[in-house]
């Protein structure tokens, strides 16, 4: 990332200080949380993953040479999450939608004057959340990176260390399952 690293350390091109970590990586903290949350489906587990991933990111930052810090950070989050899932295999986590209460959900889609419509939208939102949360993790992560982070296929392939062809078919299956499950619930 030319222009960010203080020139005083020009002898070590990739040596970047904390100020740069703050500038380059921290803007993507929210994206990191969102991904951790969707992968782990449980707020406490997501925070653990986020904590560990951010420490790893800070530790490895000196060797970060890429131009896409968000993809780099999300790859770390993703790998940390998978590590955590492997450790906790068999431990049930709470699906993302079940602990969100109606009131909180209404707040998220506020901006609508009509409380009935707002409530309806909130319910729909919760249903969609539950459907996404129910997708197999490899489909879920592909969908989240595409729809929420608007990653290109290439970026998803890099972040998930998966061939582009597989990314495309996972994304297709994720959307197909989502659309069909929604239709079954009368959502579409």
């Amino acid at each position: 990332m030319p222009g960010f690293a203080p020139s005083s350390r020009g002898d070590v091109p990739n040596a970047v200080g904390n100020a740069s970590f703050e500038l380059v990586v921290l803007p993507h903290l929210d994206a990191a949380y969102n991904l951790a949350r969707w992968l782990m489906r449980d707020p406490a587990a997501a925070e653990d993953v986020l904590q560990e991933a951010m420490v790893r990111a800070l530790t490895y930052f000196a060797s970060f040479k890429g131009v896409n810090p968000r993809a780099w950070l999300l790859q770390i989050v993703r790998n940390t999450a998978y590590g955590s899932m492997a450790l906790n295999r068999g431990v049930e986590t709470v699906p993302i939608a079940e602990e969100s209460d109606e009131a909180g959900a209404v707040e998220l889609v506020s901006g609508d004057d009509n409380p009935e419509i707002a409530l309806l939208r909130a319910r729909e939102c919760r249903q969609v959340r539950a459907l996404i949360a129910a997708l197999p993790v490899e489909l879920r992560e592909t969908l989240v990176l595409r729809e929420f982070e608007e990653f290109s296929y290439k970026e998803i392939a890099e972040a998930t260390q998966t061939p582009i062809g597989t990314v495309m078919s996972r994304l297709w299956r994720a959307r197909q399952m989502l659309a069909q499950a929604a239709a079954a619930e009368g959502l579409v």
Partner: peptide, 25 residues
Amino acid sequence: ELMRARGLMRGDLYEPMPDDVRTRV
């Protein structure tokens, strides 16, 4: 079908980070 799936995700599904999580991180 793909467009229906995309339409379903138009809502606000992004998980906002709570302030206390940010503070702890």
